[in-house]
């Protein structure tokens, strides 16, 4: 009986841990794809593919020139539909931290963006509230703080 209980408990916890790792991988994949698309695709495709746009959608963006931009759903949809990134950029993500609350997740991480040809390195601190909709993780609220280091 004891053996059965312990085995069941181990199975339950490994199942939970495996589920968490699976969700983390799914979120990493979405963030990775979104980042790559910033470098290559017009901005409106980013909102369409990776964001939930509703009355609480918010993107706070602090750019290296010191400006803070606050975008709600309407402001995001009004942005000119051009490619905003630089396809030469190499991006590394680190110190990623996940918290899950059912179909909602809060993710924070650091990104290092390097454009070697221009000798530019940008460090970015990012925090996202993401929601799982029809099995896919999407951004809902995001903050991006960018600082040039070189």
């Amino acid at each position: 009986m004891k053996f059965f209980l312990i085995t069941s408990l181990c199975f339950f916890f490994s199942h939970v841990a495996f589920g968490q790792i699976e969700e983390e991988s799914a979120i990493r994949a979405v963030l990775e794809a979104e980042t790559q698309d910033y470098l290559l695709k017009p901005i409106q495709e980013i909102w369409k593919n990776y964001w939930i746009l509703d009355d609480k959608t918010t993107l706070f963006l602090h750019t290296p020139d010191g400006a803070t931009n606050i975008f709600d759903k309407n402001a995001l949809l009004e942005l000119p539909n051009i490619v905003t990134g630089d396809e030469r950029a190499k991006i590394e993500r680190s110190n990623i931290n996940f918290q899950f609350f059912g179909d909602m997740a809060v993710v924070s991480y650091e990104s290092k963006i390097v454009i070697q040809e221009e000798s530019i390195t940008v460090l970015s601190l990012e925090m996202r509230e993401m929601k799982k909709v029809n099995g896919k993780w999407l951004n809902h609220i995001g903050t991006i703080i960018q600082n040039i280091t070189q």
Binding site: F60, H62, G66, Q99, S108, M127, T143, I145
Partner: peptide, 26 residues
């Protein structure tokens, strides 16, 4: 100074507490 904030709060023992925050000043 305008500061744009994002908070994650959790309710612990009946009290809301800040667990994560982003604050940007301009």
């Amino acid at each position: 100074l305008v500061s744009a904030h994002l908070y994650l709060l959790k309710k612990v023992d009946g009290k809301w507490l800040i667990n994560c925050a982003t604050k940007m000043q301009s």
